[in-house]
């Protein structure tokens, strides 16, 4: 599959402060990569380095197979981005802003402006000027400007911050539509991890300028899948009882704990069977990790994967 972006051992220092430290990320065509990190972790610095608003101190960034020089800048024509906050001309309407940027970008497709406005849902804003737009509308405007020259790769920095729940869903659906219909590659950073989970196919967790974990959505789901946690006095006896009631998918974690991954047996039935067979049951709960908990555990260094 075509490699869209390869970040190789990239580091960035501002004075004595190291903001990025040997970051490696690879994106293939059609990926939706979620960049997760706390404030100041280096997310925006990575995104700015890709679009050359910042020059890395060390390392290489390869975009569509090109690493440096004017060819790299040329490849940026295949990207669209919203970095930090969406910006457009305050005094112009949505349509006028797109006409303005289409002139600057030299967009020749006469339908591009109307098609893009319709796609992002700003085709009915009429004479309302950008300065009077709500935050959600401004984000859509930023997306429209980014999409104007039909990019293959979209870079979005915290695009759903401050949006209301309906605007978040609309924005997510727009991005998924772009990914599904045009195989658009998307690199997105966000604090809203539940939302990012619904969008991304891969995640990179950034802490203090270092990618501390890369995980696919599938791997995450396997590691964080729901299970029933049992705490018992006699795991050997308990496993025999579980087998008798038709439960085969479980794992003995330690001397007291068993995780059951077969969720079609009611907790009440498990509990009563164990008690009837003289197993002392101290805990029976249904557990699982969402992305936020996973991120927190990883960053806090409180067990991470082992506890999942």
């Amino acid at each position: 599959m075509e490699e869209v972006l390869k970040i190789d051992q990239v580091a960035k220092q501002f004075g004595r402060q190291t903001v990025l430290n040997d970051v490696n990320i690879t994106l293939h065509r059609g990926d939706i990569y979620g960049l997760i990190g706390r404030n100041g972790a280096g997310k925006t610095t990575i995104l700015k380095s890709i679009i050359k608003l910042i020059q890395p101190t060390k390392g290489t960034i390869t975009l569509f197979g090109v690493t440096k020089g004017s060819n790299y800048i040329h490849q940026l024509r295949r990207t669209g981005s919203i970095i930090e906050s969406p910006v457009a001309v305050d005094q112009l309407t949505a349509r006028q802003n797109l006409i303005y940027y289409s002139k600057i970008h030299g967009v020749v497709d006469s339908n591009a402006v109307d098609d893009t406005l319709k796609f992002v849902g700003l085709d009915t804003t009429g004479k309302k000027k950008f300065k009077d737009f709500s935050l959600g509308m401004k984000q859509k405007m930023g997306l429209a400007i980014a999409l104007l020259n039909k990019p293959d790769f979209l870079i979005l920095d915290e695009p759903i911050n401050g949006l209301d729940p309906i605007a978040i869903v609309e924005f997510r659906e727009l991005l998924l539509k772009l990914n599904r219909t045009q195989q658009m590659t998307i690199l997105i950073s966000s604090h809203i991890l539940d939302e990012l989970y619904q969008l991304a196919t891969r995640f990179g967790i950034l802490n203090n300028g270092t990618i501390v974990k890369e995980i696919t959505k599938q791997e995450f789901e396997e590691q964080s899948r729901e299970f029933i946690k049992l705490e018992v006095d006699n795991p050997d006896l308990a496993t025999n009882v579980l087998r008798k009631i038709g439960c085969s998918n479980f794992k003995v974690i330690n001397d007291h704990r068993i995780n059951i991954y077969q969720l079609d047996i009611a907790n009440a039935k498990i509990a009563s069977s164990l008690i009837e067979n003289q197993v002392q049951l101290s805990t029976i709960t249904r557990e699982g990790l969402n992305l936020e908990q996973y991120f927190k555990q990883l960053i806090d260094g409180m067990g991470g994967e082992q506890d999942v």
């Binding site: 679009i51 050359k52 608003l53 800048i73 040329h74 490849q75 940026l76 024509r77 990207t79 669209g80 981005s81 970095i83 930090e84 910006v87 457009a88 940027y101 600057i104 970008h105 400007i145 980014a146 020259n149 990019p151 870079i155």
Partner: peptide
């Protein structure tokens, strides 16, 4: 940022 991030 808009023109600079898109190939200028």
């Amino acid at each position: 940022k808009n023109p600079l991030s898109s190939g200028m």
